[in-house]
Design a protein around this nucleic acid. Structure first.
Length: 123
DNA sequence: TCAAAGGCGCCAA
DNA sequence: CTTGGCGCCTTTG
């Protein structure tokens, strides 16, 4: 496995707390398989970040364009897509999810069917 | 230290 | 279904 990423690349300082949280978040997000979706709160909790759902949302909004992370698989806990249709990100999100076989009706995804269950298979 | 703001979450009306 | 309101955690000024 390649090193996930180097946030402070050109320095050799130890990772800051912010870096550590980002790494935790990215690590968990990378586990979400295609065809499944998760929520901001679920990511935060599973990454050991407590109830930092909002922070997750903001962090994801700041992802670089070239990121390979499946940010599009992150939706609201209610099953609704937080990113509005018509916006670049929202449109991209809907396109990617549909390509993964996820049905989106009325801006929402069936969590029962497509919700990611981390502990169910991998471990 | 305080205040404001985020791709949120949950509950009540 | 929609609003309001409050809580949550973190960053920024």
């Amino acid at each position: 496995m390649a090193k996930t990423r180097l946030t402070n690349s050109d320095t050799h300082q130890p990772p800051s707390e912010q870096d550590r949280r980002r790494e935790a978040l990215f690590g968990v997000l990378a586990m979400v398989p295609a065809g499944k979706v998760t929520s901001y709160g679920q990511l935060a909790e599973f990454a050991g970040l407590g109830r930092a759902a909002r922070w997750v949302g903001r962090t994801l909004s700041q992802l670089p364009q070239g990121s390979t992370l499946p940010w599009h698989r992150v939706i609201a806990a209610s099953g609704r897509l937080s990113l509005p249709a018509g916006s670049p990100s929202g449109d991209e999100q809907r396109m990617r999810l549909r390509e993964e076989g996820i049905q989106i009706q009325h801006d929402r995804v069936d969590i029962r069917q497509h919700g990611w269950r981390p502990t169910e298979h991998s471990g």
